[in-house]
Write a protein that binds this DNA or RNA. Sequence first.
DNA 1: GTAGGGATAATCT
DNA 2: GATTATCCCTACG
Length: 196
Amino acid sequence: MYSDNLIEKLTSLNAVDAAKFLIGCELISFTSEGGCSGMIVETEAYDMRDKASHSFKGMTVRNSAMFGPAGTAYVYFTYGMHFCMNIVVGKEGFGAAVLIRALEPLTGLELMSKRRNVSNKHNLASGPAKLTQALYITRPLNGHRLNGPPLILKRGTKFNDVDLVLTKRIGISEKKDFGLKRRVCLKGSEFLSRPL
DNA sequence: GTAGGGATAATCT
DNA sequence: GATTATCCCTACG
């Protein structure tokens, strides 16, 4: 299960450090269809001082989960057909979160294949909207605390800075992302949303 | 393997 | 009315 230790850790970190810390952690999904899980291999950091963040202009109906306690899920709908999932970090009320961009599938690959309608292991969860589809993360999970079913965050493999690569974020205009390197990838992973 | 464009609707201006 | 923290399919090297 998810120790208070993990919540404390996520509360104490800023968005970028949390994005690094979350690489190697595991997400585990339980539904009536069965269970599946994956290891986080790619993330992006967002917070209130960042023009590209949903929380930049303050709290709205859509982004309110981002201002909750660390360890909460912020799930939003975008592009008319996709869900994306963040893990809220930092102190309650601040509005910081880490977008989960890619997973390496660990268990329940058959279920993920069925939901995604693809068989290639490298195409199951290698993108922010792909992984929400594979783990069945949808609107009702917005605001869910990740310490119990149907979705749990757990510590996994621990990686050091030398194992990580920081790049500019995906899908953010150059103006908003000006010079920032807030996307974190596990070096050498075959399961990133795009190659390095 | 890389590039371009369509799908599709909540959210915000 | 415009924008969007995306994905998939097609076409072309």
